[in-house]
């Protein structure tokens, strides 16, 4: 029998945040500790895998101890240890997976492997209960996916990017504009000041498809910058940022709206790092205001990578007793 009020200690190390959290019943956050490495990777203009792994190792035990202390619990009170098993950088994932297995083994607790994207979706459950059927738009540096859910723990990918993720396009365009990493917040900030003057393409793909494509847009922006520089013309950085962002957001909002309507969902969850984007949030709110679909976007601290979301997603698996063995391994290309 699974008792109520279960406590899950969760770990997330898939990219450049070392995170641990204690979550009660998948809905209540008792602690949420995140040690970011962003300032370190900023110097390199992107995440450097081996640097990330080294920092995870340095931070892991500190973050874990802090998560348990802040939650005011002991390891005895914990019912299961959850960890992101993928997708992500293999060296980074391994730090979390091994920490989780060591803890679980030492304290005789079950270990639960969680898909990073399931975590992003479940970040919302710490704020608002799910209403099924629901649709989730997951947008981040590595993902752009529309995921349909009829019940807890069941994920159907109904659309995904055919080339680059939205966040990847942001980072590459930011780099072409010589903006610091990470590019998303920089472009969003500049876009508030500019106008959509460059008319970059919007890729809707074939009629009825919920897939995305951002590679053509990225190439169009970079080619445009190249041409302007060659002709010695001035580049209006704000207008480039606005024009690029408008193209991305138009497609994201339109496709999500169509999918939500076609699937008759009750709730729409926007998740992943790019859901921190102010313009995307505002436009989603605008578009869904007149519908019956409830829009849920997590607060900023739950949009970026964190372990609380992993604990929330793990709760569902805990109730199914869907435990991993101590053979659990990092899986950089884990499919949903």
């Amino acid at each position: 029998m699974i008792e109520k009020n279960e406590l899950i200690l969760a770990i997330e190390t898939s990219c450049d945040e070392t995170a641990a959290a204690v979550v009660q019943d998948g809905t209540k956050l008792l602690s949420n500790v995140v040690a970011t490495q962003m300032d370190i990777h900023q110097k390199f203009g992107g995440v450097v895998p081996e640097v990330a792994s080294r920092h995870h190792i340095e931070q892991m035990t500190v973050v874990l101890e802090q998560a348990v202390t802040e939650a005011n619990v002991t390891m005895e009170d914990i019912d299961a240890v959850a960890v992101t098993e993928g997708p992500g950088l293999v060296g980074a994932l391994l730090v979390g997976v091994n920490a989780a297995k060591a803890l679980a083994y030492a304290h005789g607790k079950p270990v639960i492997g969680v898909h990073h994207i399931a975590g992003h979706i479940y970040a919302n459950r710490l704020e608002k209960e799910f209403e099924f059927p629901l649709l989730s738009l997951v947008v981040s540096g590595g993902h752009t996916e529309l995921i349909y859910m009829e019940e807890h723990g069941e994920y159907e990918i109904i659309g995904e990017t055919r080339d680059d993720a939205a966040g990847e396009a942001y980072d590459k365009v930011a780099k072409a504009l010589s903006l610091p990493y990470p590019g998303g917040p920089q472009i969003d900030r500049l876009a508030q000041e500019g106008k959509d003057t460059y008319n970059f393409p919007r890729s809707y793909l074939e009629e009825g498809s919920y897939d995305f494509s951002f590679s053509g847009l990225k190439t169009a922006v970079i080619n445009k910058l190249h041409h302007l520089r060659q002709k010695g013309e001035e580049i209006d950085v704000e207008n480039v940022a606005t024009s690029f962002q408008e193209s991305v957001i138009d497609v994201l909002v339109d496709k999500t709206y169509d999918a939500a309507k076609d699937y008759g969902v009750k709730q729409l969850i926007v998740a992943g790092g790019v859901s921190a984007n102010k313009t995307l949030r505002a436009r989603m709110e605008q578009r869904f205001a007149e519908t019956d679909v409830e829009l849920a976007i997590p607060p900023l601290y739950l949009c970026t990578d964190n372990a609380a979301m992993i604990g929330a997603a793990a709760s569902v698996e805990y109730h199914k007793q869907n435990y991993a063995s101590l053979n659990l391994n990092a899986n950089p290309g884990l499919m949903m």
């Binding site: 950088l89 590595g142 990017t161 055919r162 993720a165 990847e168 950089p332």
Partner: peptide, 15 residues
């Protein structure tokens, strides 16, 4: 069978 897309973020993707 699956959609092949950019592996940039995770460096490697398996199909």
């Amino acid at each position: 069978k699956r959609t092949v897309n950019s592996p940039t973020y995770t460096i490697v993707k398996e199909y």
